[in-house]
Amino acid sequence: MDATALSDPLARWRAAVEAWRPPGHLRSPGGGPVPRPATVVRGMDEVDLPPGSRSHERAVQALPEGGTVLDVGCGAGGASLPLAGRAGLIVGVDPEEHLLEALRASGRHLGVRVETVRGRWPDVAAEVAPADVVVCHHVLYGVADLGPFAAALTARARRRVVVEIPARHPLHALNPLWERFHGLVRPDGPTADDALAALRAAGVDPRIERWTDRGGWGRYPDLSALADRVRRRLFLPPERTAQVADALRELGVDPARPRFPGTEGRTLCTLWWEP
């Protein structure tokens, strides 16, 4: 990377995100990420909201009763469903149809109107009407071209944009396993501070709040299930699942309460701004 790029926060962000792409030679049968779970909730008591979520608090502050929430990279609605008791309409954007269907089903159970748009942001931004609050949780680390992405979030928000990301890349905790199984040293960044600098370079001026995630994200029924998920992330074949389980124990994972490495007590960051 040349000196000009190194001094540009947006260029540094792009390079750091692209560095996380798995090496092509490691792609093998049985490896790679598993589909994101399409959980359907049937009552507000089932909605998963981390205790003390600053992201939820900042969204509620700006959302009028009966207002509209736009959830970008919505998955099954982890960012928007906790707002169902206040929102009149939730609009979800995601490239995976099975997740959009889960969000629509949850909306029916919770009694809130849900509309969905299938596609990637900001490619489909023109198909989406402005909303009172735009939420975007756990997406930025997969967005190399952050400037247009953030600009489209801002353009669709009438009152506020609320973004949530971990302080470090969510797969950073697996770096020792990449070196153990593949002899590869994986990137140390990007971080939430890098995202903040890139957003400011793009003309956005977010405020940032850091808080501790004490929720239940990353839990698995047993160590074998967690090891299978991790070995897919490492692009290892199924027959190496037991070796991954051993490595997870050495990383400090408790077999009695298996959690994805790096998720327990992690620092989350809420970035929020007004259009």
Rank of each mutant, 00 (worst) to 15 (best):
L83C: 10
P95V: 14
L89D: 08
H98I: 03
G88I: 09
R58Q: 13
E97Q: 15
L70E: 14
A59G: 05
D71R: 01
A76T: 03
G77Q: 00
E96R: 15
D94N: 15
G67C: 09
G77E: 01
G73E: 03
A87G: 12
V69M: 07
P64D: 07
L83N: 04
V93T: 14
P64F: 05
V93M: 12
A62F: 07
G75Y: 00
E96H: 15
E65L: 13
V69D: 03
E65P: 00
A76R: 01
Q61L: 13
S80M: 10
G75E: 02
P64H: 06
G67A: 11
P95N: 14
G75Q: 01
D71N: 07
E65S: 13
I90G: 02
L70C: 13
V72N: 09
A84V: 08
P95Q: 14
P95R: 12
L81N: 04
G88W: 03
G92K: 09
S80W: 02
E96P: 00
V91A: 10
G88D: 10
P64G: 06
L89S: 07
A87D: 12
A87H: 06
R86V: 15
G78W: 01
S80Y: 06
R58N: 02
D94L: 11
G73V: 06
A76C: 11
G73P: 03
V72T: 09
Q61V: 12
S80G: 13
G67H: 07
E96V: 13
E57T: 10
R86W: 11
P64R: 02
E96F: 15
R58E: 14
H56N: 03
L81P: 03
L70M: 13
T68D: 13
G77F: 00
R58S: 01
E96M: 09
A59N: 03
P82Q: 07
L81I: 09
A87N: 09
A87M: 11
C74V: 10
A76D: 05
V60Q: 13
G67R: 04
A84C: 10
G66T: 10
E57M: 04
V60W: 03
V93E: 09
V60T: 11
G73C: 07
L63W: 01
V60E: 15
I90Y: 00
G66I: 09
